[in-house]
Nucleic acid binder design. Structure first.
Lengths: 150, 150
DNA sequence: CCAATTCCTACCGGGCTGATAGAGATTATG
DNA sequence: CATAATCTCTATCAGCCCGGTAGGAATTGG
């Protein structure tokens, strides 16, 4: 499950992408309906990950560290929720063998975990803030959803 | 993240698929190194979902409710961890609108959630217990992993 | 100097996860 | 029938994580 925190982070990043300018935490929080003090921590995490930068003082605020086309959903999710894999033993960025798995290579479950990770990462690395902000928000998965108006 | 419980459930189901016969909780727990009393609850859940059946008394035990080719990873995971989607608003089986989302159709995040769900479900519905048990456990995702022996 | 902002650290309640416990129901076997 | 092996059910519990709050320190424009 996607954490609430991650959803907030995505919303904040998307807000910055839309605005294409620096914005204060207060402004972001108000617009995206995010608890202000909570958002502070989130922005700090995104800053630590190098996704956004900040300026202090009046007229200060946060802004994207690079073009919205270059910031992917995968990057945002990873810096908040950690690895995308369903289990550490299937993680690309933070591999760790299962505690209770006799041998990693003979595990009957791991191939599935790897497959899921691969497809998920492929997808998430392919979606940028810019892509999500541009266009009616349906193009991504609507292509094979024919005529479902409900 | 995949819960420990779900991993136990998969292991138990795979054990039954391998054995192709009924097995007691004690036997399953011993072989797959699962806490016995915990496994009891898991088997009950799988039974409630119709994946396995049981017989009581001595010589009793659990057995798959249908051929291992017809039981998918998706089914096992769903009956333990609930919906596969990353968020309720993207769930196929348990849809529920986001609490803090002005409008479901204008959400900039949901298309991603739907896409992830689609690919994940497609994959997980495609892996049966039989498939996971047959063959060296790599074929599923090794096809594009050329020569990586580490 | 003052006020607006980011930065940092600590804290906390509630729910979920991963168990453990024990009693009850069912059924082969001697 | 008695026994023992099994499944079935419900309660309980400790620890952790999630979502959120709090308060103050540092920075900087006006």
């Amino acid at each position: 499950m996607l954490s609430q925190k991650a959803r907030y982070a995505l919303n904040a990043a998307l807000y910055l992408a839309r605005k294409n300018d620096s914005a204060s935490i207060t402004a972001i929080a108000a617009d995206r309906e995010i608890p202000r003090k909570f958002l502070e921590q989130i922005m700090l995490q995104m800053k630590a990950a190098g996704l956004v930068r900040s300026r202090r003082g009046p007229t200060g605020g946060y802004y994207l560290a690079s073009a919205p086309e270059t910031i992917t959903f995968a990057a945002v999710l990873r810096c908040i929720d950690g690895p995308l894999a369903l289990a550490p033993c299937a993680s690309f960025t933070a591999y760790e063998p299962c505690s209770s798995c006799k041998s990693v290579t003979s595990c009957e479950i791991r191939p599935m975990l790897l497959a899921v990770r691969d497809t998920t990462v492929l997808l998430l690395e392919g979606i940028s803030l810019a892509a999500a902000v541009a266009e009616p928000p349906s193009m991504l998965s609507e292509e094979k959803r024919a005529g479902g108006s409900a």
